[in-house]
Design a protein around this nucleic acid. Structure first.
Length: 276
DNA sequence: CCACGATCCTGCTAGC
DNA sequence: TGCTAGCAGGATCGTG
């Protein structure tokens, strides 16, 4: 499940290959919701001939900046994967979009579960989207004070729900939310507004550390899945997870079995002793 | 304001 | 061994 570190890694790897390339044509659009609200025809028409002038990331969105401020966003959701392949190669199964580039290669979006989305925004539309998203946790201006304001003074919503809400904080998903809460020793059901200054400082540090460590490891890859082209690029953070996917296993800190409960509609993993 | 359920999908797993 | 029911998950929307 690509979260901030996985999307950032994808952007870094694709950047040198995509920068300056033009989209010759779009083909293989076989699932209309992928490019909504545009129709497949409109999307293909508007993408044809467009040059990629920058490759970036915002929250969990991969950004392909086009000329005149337009932005193509790629949200991989759960099972989305991008592949850069020679244009003459047939798409792998479950490929729902192919962008042919002007260098003889093609960017393939493969997504068995069809949750991923491609959206083409004008500069104004993208600016509005940008404003709706919360702060980037790895940016220099993400301070404990900023986190405190996002958690609210007396917000009653569960901490985990707030961490997953992209309007509060950008880029965290289920894995890193659980890992950050464990590192901060905070229970996922704590009311977001009830944290002390010390606890906020710990959570701030935990969020940044877990994301930075995951980024250094090229992200997390679970099971056989790879989120990028080529197994060599698979993320190595999976072996460093302390609570996610470890239900019933001993807490690395105190030995208590890690618990798993549904919190904020997501499976949540935590140590019932360490996390208060 | 907040929780919860439904929705969208299909590969995988648990359980028979 | 073979089958199937149900889960997982991000974002969004409707309901209570």
């Amino acid at each position: 499940m690509p979260e901030l570190p996985e999307v950032e890694t994808t952007a870094r790897i694709l950047r040198p290959d995509l920068l300056g390339r033009s989209v010759v044509r779009v083909r293989g659009l076989d699932y209309p919701p992928l490019v909504e609200p545009l129709t497949s025809e409109e999307f293909a028409d508007r993408m044809r001939g467009r040059r990629i002038v920058a490759v970036g990331r915002r929250a969990k969105l991969l950004l392909l900046q086009l000329e005149e401020g337009e932005v193509l966003t790629v949200h991989l959701r759960m099972s989305g994967r991008l592949y850069l392949r020679p244009a003459v190669e047939d798409p792998l199964p479950h490929t729902h979009a192919v962008l042919d580039l002007d260098d003889g290669r093609a960017l393939h979006l493969r997504d068995p579960r069809k949750f991923g989305r491609l959206r083409l925004y004008t500069a104004d539309e993208y600016a509005a989207l940008h404003r709706r998203l919360g702060p980037e946790p790895l940016s220099a201006d993400f301070t404990p004070e900023v986190l405190a304001s996002r958690l609210g003074a007396r917000r009653r919503a569960q901490l985990k729900a707030v961490l997953l809400d992209q309007r509060s904080l950008a880029g965290l998903g289920n894995i890193y939310a659980d890992e950050a809460l464990f590192r901060a020793r905070l229970h996922p059901r704590r009311p977001a507004g009830g944290l002390s200054a010390m606890e906020i400082a710990q959570l701030h540090r935990a969020i940044r550390e877990v994301l930075l460590e995951a980024l250094t490891a090229n992200g997390t890859t679970l099971g056989d899945g790879i989120y990028l082209f080529g197994a060599d690029e698979a993320g190595r953070f999976a072996e460093r997870l302390q609570v996610y996917g470890r239900a019933g296993a001993a807490c690395f800190s105190c030995g208590t079995p890690i618990e798993r409960q549904t919190v904020a509609g997501r499976s949540s993993h935590f140590c019932p002793v360490c996390q208060k």
